[in-house]
Amino acid sequence: MGSVMKKIGLIGYLLLIVLGCFPLRAKAVSQTDSLADVFVRLQSAAAKTRSIASDFVQEKQLAIFSETLKSKGRFFYRQPDQLRWELLTPVASGFVLNGQQGQRWNSLSRETRSFAIATDPMMGIVARQLLAWARVDMTWLQKRYRIELLDTQPIRLKLLPRDQGEAGFIEQLQILFAADRSHVVEVEMFEKGGDKTRLRFTNVRINQPLTEETFKAPEF
């Protein structure tokens, strides 16, 4: 179960993150719109995206923690393959990715480590997932998840893992979009066993100029 679960967990989690960040500037979806129409509009909007900048709040309700783990952070994406995922509180940590190479850091241990997605399978999966969502590769996502349209006012999608291994790990993902559908406001991941993670995205800026410094790791 282990490896598959790891990947599945990552996929789900990344799904949460990126869905919350990529722009949704599609026109209002009517009740009669099919899921395929929604996807086409999402992909069409994503095609115009050159960069994404967003803040987020993460709440983790995990059985192994006595209290809900609350954290705040930032997410950045720039075409074609640059990413920054960063927690600001309670522990400054995160990673940047520039093509095939990246760096991750942890302010507690005051460590910065380089990695290559080719030799670090876990970061490879993270990068693949993040980029797939940032580019809105619906073909790829539909292969991995059965997607249901839960609600249209506002839009709420339910993603169910197709892979048996993944399904044994993650029960479902729910994605809630803003009323004007311009961006994701909330992502919830329900794990088998009752653990739950909620991400709320705020202050989403599309195609805002991003400096090179954005994609560099901090120095300790």
Binding site: M5, K6, K7, I8, G9, L10, G12, Y13, L14, I17, Q58, K60, L62, I64, L69, S71, W85, L87, V91, S93, G94, F95, N106, L108, S109, M122, M123, V126, L130, I170, M189, E191, D195, T197
Partner: peptide, 12 residues
Amino acid sequence: TQLMQPQGVALK
């Protein structure tokens, strides 16, 4: 730190 990162789900 790992549990709060994206890969934390897989590492739990």
